[in-house]
């Protein structure tokens, strides 16, 4: 009974334990806690930490997909990928993709969350309905948009032409001028519902009394938004921005399935470039060097972001 013997003081302390960091932790069922955390930690050690370490090792060898004994080559792969001029493009595109995507998705999600936070008939159905584009497999999303945006017989071109908005059909996914923005929007369409859900979670936490007080004071809708709603959801907007950026940088499937990184490499972001180098050019060492570099960049980015954001905001939302 040692784990449950800590009694009521511990239960009270529980609420405080999350607060001040570094102060002594009052153990509550500590043995059980460690025991229950063990399976997932072992699982992640084997499936993330181990391959991660192995990835760093591969990046220092001349390994390829074909087999053969890899030879240690030091930092040669890093020198190759960083100097052969093939990584700059994908890197910049990844940045544009992630930042553009995060802005579009956060704005769409914030708007959608505000709309869905009202009480109206069918609000539960509406909340579930908008999750559809997130639930459906990426391959279906990719097919759907390739089909609707098709230059020859897609419904979007058909409608735009009959409305007289465009003279001739636009090859949204095949035209180098349009492909990048099109895939960015398709990806936003897929992901913004999930961001909406996260923001909605923060909105439901705003006590109705705040709104009532604001109304009594005669605040306009805009004032209510900027003085009450926004301060409440600001922390979660930061988190959504951070998560959205990091998730976007990792996105591979929607790009690969709509454009394969084309046309003219216009949509070739870092994950696409890594995939091609590893499984089309079979140069695992170089692909791993690119992966490790990307991971380091993400780490630095996340660190700066968390430092930049008001202290406590991210922890409060995520933890």
């Amino acid at each position: 009974m040692s784990t449950t013997g800590s009694s009521a003081q511990a239960a009270n302390a529980e609420t405080d334990a999350a607060g001040p960091k570094g102060s002594a932790v009052v153990p509550v069922r500590a043995r059980l806690g460690r025991l229950f955390a063990a399976p997932i930690m072992i699982w992640l050690a084997l499936t993330i930490a181990l391959p991660l370490g192995y990835c760093i090792w591969i990046s220092l060898t001349n390994a390829n997909t074909m087999g053969g004994t890899p030879r240690f080559v030091g930092l040669a792969n890093y020198v190759t990928v960083l100097t052969d001029g093939t990584v700059g493009g994908p890197f910049l595109r990844s940045l544009a993709w992630a930042i553009g995507g995060a802005i579009i998705q956060t704005l769409l999600a914030a708007g959608a969350a505000l709309l869905l936070n009202r009480r109206f008939a069918g609000q539960h159905i509406a909340r579930t309905w908008i999750m559809a584009s997130w639930v459906v497999p990426t391959i279906v999303t990719a097919f759907l948009w390739r089909w609707m945006l098709n230059a020859d017989f897609g419904v979007v071109n058909h409608v735009l032409q009959s409305l007289g908005l465009i003279g001739r059909p636009i090859d949204f996914l095949g035209d180098p001028d349009f492909a990048f923005i099109t895939v960015t929007l398709v990806n936003a369409w897929r992901w913004f519902p999930f961001m909406t859900l996260l923001i909605l979670a923060a909105l439901t936490r705003v006590a109705p009394e705040y709104y009532e007080a604001a109304r009594v004071e005669g605040a306009t809708s805009w004032q209510v938004f900027t003085r009450v709603t926004l301060p409440f959801i600001q922390p979660v907007l930061y988190v959504v921005g951070l998560l959205g950026t990091l998730w976007s940088i990792n996105v591979f499937d929607i790009i690969w399935l709509t454009t394969k990184g084309g046309p003219l490499d216009m949509t070739e972001t870092m994950p696409v470039a890594i995939y091609e180098r590893a499984f089309q050019q079979f140069r695992l060492g170089e692909a791993s060097a690119m992966s490790v570099s990307l991971a380091l960049f993400l780490l630095v980015f996340a660190y700066c972001f968390i430092r930049f954001v008001p202290r406590g905001a991210t922890e409060q939302e995520v933890i």
Partner: peptide
């Protein structure tokens, strides 16, 4: 539902996995 030293670290590690780039593991896996 429990408190012990290292719990925060466990939680942080779980968080890191949310944003971990899957492509990074592709070649080593």
């Amino acid at each position: 539902r429990t408190r012990y030293r290292g719990r925060q670290t466990v939680y942080l590690l779980l968080l890191v996995v949310y944003v971990f780039p899957g492509i990074l593991l592709l070649a080593p896996l």
